[in-house]
């Protein structure tokens, strides 16, 4: 059973967001363990670039596994401040540690995130 850490917020498209989600804050974004397990071994991540503007609910990249490909949605709106460069060579970090080394990008929020789920609601949505 995939874990759903209590302290994170979640989107319906299976991304997680760390920390406060008020305007001006920098948050970290990744995909959930549930999403990583459904995709299988991830072999390629196309993440947004530093400086890109991302919009909550819109496609900002893609994740490719041997079995399937999935679009990456931004769970928040803002400007990308960092991307996880290590995923270029080691995308399997997402399967191994979805909530840690498998983080994908960081965003400085241009507005407060309002449509995110708490852990309990997300866990219920994938049960």
């Amino acid at each position: 059973m995939a874990t759903v850490p209590e302290e994170l917020a979640y989107s319906a498209e299976h991304e997680w967001v760390s920390g406060d989600t008020d305007a001006g804050v920098v948050v970290t974004v990744g995909i959930t363990e549930h999403a990583a397990e459904a995709l299988g071994d991830i072999v390629y991540v196309e993440a947004p670039r530093v400086g890109d503007t991302v919009v909550a609910g819109e496609v900002c990249g893609e994740l490719e596994s041997t079995k399937a490909v999935s679009e990456l949605y931004s769970p928040v709106s803002g400007v990308v401040t960092a991307v996880n460069e290590a995923l270029e060579r080691a995308p399997e970090a997402i399967n191994a540690d979805a909530y840690g080394d498998g983080w994908i990008f960081k965003v400085e929020l241009s507005e407060s995130a309002t449509d995110l789920l708490d852990a309990e609601a997300y866990a219920a949505s994938v049960a």
Partner: peptide
């Protein structure tokens, strides 16, 4: 569809 991981099985 898999037991552990697609690439390890392949």
């Amino acid at each position: 569809v898999r037991y552990t991981g697609d690439i390890a099985e392949h």
